[in-house]
Design a protein around this nucleic acid. Structure first.
Length: 154
DNA sequence: GCCAACGTTGGC
DNA sequence: GCCAACGTTGGC
């Protein structure tokens, strides 16, 4: 079982939006980066857990956890000209992009701000904190997962 | 709104 | 296959 971090802009889709969905589930669409797609397609398995990260907002940080409940399948928004995620190079035969389904698990009492994450020496090497990192999906080690959960409880 | 960092595109 | 130009991300 693997651990992940999923970024989303809360103005577009927040953890509260996910919690309000029927069954507290939704598809994680709109991934348009090959590195992120490949990890999602090849390594993300049903039962994996992920942090929900709010980016591009007043206080960026980790707000809770979700579970992967369906493994990668075609991202139909790539084929939809009306969608903001439309990719003119995607075809029904080769949609290029995929998505997974996630289910809300937990919202932390308070966000763990990026500034706090940066100060925790236990997770100083994590991908999220590397300079210039822009991946919207990234792997998290078990040690990092546990260290961050401890911050949420502490 | 700025800008650093990175990914993608396309001409050659 | 190189690399300049361009677009996007995302913290600040």
């Amino acid at each position: 079982m693997n651990y992940w971090l999923l970024k989303s802009e809360p103005d577009a889709f927040s953890i509260d939006d996910l919690r309000k969905m029927p069954g507290k589930k939704d598809h994680w669409d709109g991934i348009r980066n090959y590195q992120a797609r490949n990890m999602m397609r090849d390594d993300m398995k049903k039962g994996d857990m992920a942090f929900f990260y709010h980016s591009s907002c007043a206080v960026p940080g980790i707000v809770g956890t979700v579970e992967i409940v369906k493994e990668a399948y075609d991202d139909h928004t790539a084929l939809d000209p009306e969608s903001g995620y439309y990719d003119p190079k995607a075809t029904p035969e080769n949609p290029r992009w995929c998505m997974v389904d996630v289910k809300f698990k937990k919202k932390f009492k308070e966000i763990i701000p990026l500034t706090d994450l940066k100060q925790n020496k236990k997770i100083s090497t994590m991908t999220l904190l590397k300079k210039g990192n822009r991946l919207s999906i990234m792997p998290v080690t078990k040690a990092e997962w546990n260290a961050i959960l401890a911050m949420a409880e502490g």
